[in-house]
Design a binder for these strands. Structure first.
Lengths: 209, 209, 209, 209
DNA sequence: GATGAATGAGACTTCATTCAT
DNA sequence: CATGAATGAAGTCTCATTCAT
């Protein structure tokens, strides 16, 4: 009798996904139970299975959601930033000041999971391609504007920079809060020097003289 | 009569640890069961608890082992390398060509776990301090020899470089095998430019002109 | 749709409690396993945990139930009895002719458990206070009616009598069935003499003469 | 080659029994493991099985030991006491001031166990007979000396008094420390009135007048 | 005598999933 | 739509007992 209102359906789905995300953020993919998610979402387990066929499916949807958000945010950041350097630094700082602190855990868990789950690996790789393309375009624009070393292969440089961003996320786990400022500052230098054309080789190794 | 034989004990312990490591590499910390480990090690569940008081304890021992190995290998790499750049690149390449491919997963899992398990975080931070000190000393030597920009704060630079190495590990998950070469090559450039003194500011932004 | 039905829930809970009680009566608190209880109740182990969070919780509920029943029955007995003596004797006889013979074991187990489990001790003490108050009031009424020695402190006498009742329960374990009659008969004398004012001291030690 | 020195054997057996007793006192029969006992006795599990064929056997030996001690102590107490009343009170007080507080638990556990384990019940009943005989003799002597109501059947009275003593042990669990003094005092009255000839019936119910 | 490595059954508990209502 | 009762496999861990040394 009741028509299956697809709007409401999607809405509820998103609600559940939000609850799941909060749960996963706390204890990782394996650490949150369907029960936990149901409690957080305020629904019954039976009902949850109307929206997702399995826990794995929830996980998949979450990953997609998180990755999409990441890409989106990254795209916005780049649009709003004056240059590549500022954009990348901003990206790293934003990641650090996340409202939900568990997001990091979620992303790290994703990496680990991708290391052993081919399906997840595929999703992650697909997303990485998208993000790299985005960043590469951005770099190319910088090169066109003369802000970035034109000899860099934009595509490869983008991959490298994504690696640097990932590394900065791990730094948050590896080191306690102190001197994070100084590290970020030096990361800025690192990126700056990478993207900027270096002096001719001849001049390079001369400090000691 | 007096058969205590701590040698055999330690040997067996190591054997179990090896089995556990293989299992964890496959399925992550949470994904491998005590049963799995026992099967892999060829012992009964009851017996395993002669050597480790809990699954958590096994995990702890593994983590310690892996981190120790990492530090050792890193130390050796640096001793054998002619300069900092070579050492870091070699480190990243070695990591990639690990005999046991699952080690990556293990390390990534460790990061994720540290993100929510304070005990694990503590261990990881302790180890990070050690590794950073090692790397900082190495950088200072390079600075003394005039190979590295003396204006860099060695301690902070070490932290940043560890981040880059971590990032390179994630790259292995993010991107399929192709064009890994080019990425590694560009990472070399990144590190090179970071550690090497840049040209005077005046000369920097001149590409386009 | 709105099927919460706390009635059915409570019913099932009581059912499980009944099964647990039967199991505990057979083998004691430690001797009955969750599996046993599930088999007795005809449910799966997973389901049992919908109703009780732990084995300890079941135990707690049982204890409460048994103690409550005891108090209730004791209250009724006293209301129905013409005087204190009859009430106490009736109490001891009733205890002996329990429908479920295991109840004794259960109570004895409770005492033992209370000797080492502080939580259980607390529950038992709470219940003891209630029962003592009940009995003390009863004794005071008897004193008012001139049936009981008014010089007895009702509260303390109640404690002592509870001890006598407990002792009579242990007698059931200590001695095989024969000459139970005679013992009960003599217990009646014991209580009678305790509650009844004795002759002046002068008259007391004169038997032999 | 080595003769099986029966003295040393018995000694070691007793040592293990002591350790087991301490363990059982803490956690009850079921709460102490063979491992615990071995640790407490400072021997290996394999060795323990040279002395006792099973855990059950240890339990049996302990029970026998405890019961024997109880009887012995009770015998001594009676020999040393001037009259029955003093002896019984002393018995109850001694029990209360036990060096090892866990002895109570052990005894209570024994009662509970006897409620369901026929072998244990048999042992307990055997011991009870011995103790009752002892006490009955003692009472008869008191009757002969004119200190105790001669109309009491000594055998039955002994059973009743053992019940009172048992009850006083449970009181230690049922009630926290306060006003234990008063209770013991009143227990004295209870026993005194029980053993002492009451006034003629006619005089008894006259308080109110 | 004495050790402790080794076993394997079984304990409690969790959890993804299904289904009658 | 929605509930929550129900399942049963699997997980971690304990423990009495055996046996080669």
């Amino acid at each position: 009798m009741r028509t299956v209102d697809p709007v409401k359906y999607e809405e509820k789905r998103r609600e559940i996904l939000g609850a799941a995300r909060r749960c996963f953020s706390r204890g990782g993919f394996r650490g949150a139970s369907i029960s936990d998610i149901c409690a957080e979402a305020g629904i019954s387990p039976g009902h949850l299975y109307h929206y997702f066929g399995s826990k794995e499916a929830i996980l998949g949807a979450i990953v997609e959601m998180v990755l999409e958000e990441t890409t989106e945010r990254f795209g916005r950041t780049m649009e709003e930033s004056p240059d590549a350097l500022a954009a990348l630094i901003s990206e790293m700082e934003q990641a650090k000041a996340e409202k939900e602190p568990g997001v990091h855990v979620l992303v790290l868990d994703m990496f680990a999971e991708a290391g052993r789950n081919p399906a997840m690996a595929e999703v992650l790789q697909e997303h990485t391609r998208g993000m790299r393309r985005l960043l590469a375009d951005f770099l190319r624009k910088g090169q066109a504007r003369g802000q970035i070393d034109p000899s860099l292969d934009a595509e490869t440089a983008a991959a490298v920079l994504i690696g640097v961003i990932d590394g900065s996320k791990i730094m948050a786990v590896r080191e306690p809060s102190p001197n994070r400022m100084k590290t970020i500052e030096l990361l800025r230098t690192l990126i700056d020097r990478f993207l900027t054309q270096p002096v001719p080789d001849a001049a390079q190794r001369e400090y000691g003289e």
